[in-house]
Simulated assay, not measured.
Amino acid sequence: MEAFLTSTAVVALAEIGDKTMLLAIVLATRFHKPLSIIFGILFATFANHAFAAFVGNSVAGVLDGQWFRYAVGASFIIMAAWTLVPDKLDDDEAKPSRYGAFLTTLVAFFIVEMGDKTQIATIALGAQFNSVLLVTAGTTLGMMIANVPAVYLGDRLVERVPLKFVRTVAAILLLGIGAWVIYETAMS
């Protein structure tokens, strides 16, 4: 259960203000088909994060050791700093294609998520916990927690709550998780 809850929290926090969240807002304002966009996000995230969790889980056995757990903790601290850097959508990413809301979202989210901080977090979580399924389910839920409100509320959400403030809170929480992992490793 710890793998699921930690994965959900880490990715939900890391996703706030991320370019995929901005992409969700752009797609919602262009297509006006929230359910198609949400299902596109769900399937793209599940596929991307299942692969990432599998990679993390696969390398965990090779990299097992206390130094690796310190590296995982440090990766959360780095993610906290990365969260403070605002993401921007490139013009090409902001233009939806003629293939409809679901397919456009599915392809765009899968591609944009490659190498993104939430995918890297999923790899680290897959390495830390010995459950690809729980990590994938948790990180996918975390993405949905962050992106479903973005799809439905879009620009209104960004107007009312400054992203800088939200990113700062998310960064503090990720820093806390990183410090907790390092502390737990030092105490074991």
Rank of each mutant, 00 (worst) to 15 (best):
I78D: 14
I78R: 12
I78G: 14
I78N: 14
I78P: 12
M79A: 15
M79K: 11
M79L: 15
A80Q: 11
A81P: 03
W82I: 15
W82G: 10
W82S: 14
W82D: 15
W82L: 15
T83E: 11
T83D: 10
L84A: 09
V85T: 12
V85F: 13
V85R: 13
P86Q: 06
D87Q: 06
D87R: 06
D87I: 08
D87M: 08
D87N: 07
D87C: 09
K88W: 05
K88T: 07
K88E: 06
K88R: 07
K88A: 02
K88C: 00
L89Y: 02
L89T: 00
D90C: 04
D90T: 05
D90E: 09
D90S: 06
D90F: 02
D90H: 01
D91I: 04
D92M: 04
D92F: 04
D92V: 02
D92T: 03
D92P: 00
E93P: 01
E93L: 03
E93M: 03
E93Y: 02
A94E: 06
A94V: 05
A94C: 00
A94N: 00
K95M: 02
K95N: 00
K95F: 02
K95C: 00
K95P: 04
P96E: 07
P96S: 09
P96W: 02
S97A: 09
S97D: 15
S97N: 12
S97E: 11
R98N: 11
R98S: 10
R98W: 05
R98D: 12
Y99F: 12
Y99G: 08
Y99V: 10
Y99L: 09
Y99P: 00
Y99R: 13
Y99K: 10
Y99H: 12
G100Y: 06
G100I: 07
A101E: 05
F102R: 02
F102M: 05
F102K: 00
F102C: 06
L103K: 13
T104K: 07
T104M: 07
T104N: 12
T104W: 07
T104C: 09
T104L: 06
T104Y: 07
L106A: 01
L106K: 04
L106Q: 01
L106S: 02
F109L: 14
F109T: 13
F109W: 10
F109C: 13
F109S: 12
F109Q: 14
F110Q: 04
I111E: 01
I111L: 14
I111A: 08
I111V: 15
I111F: 13
I111M: 10
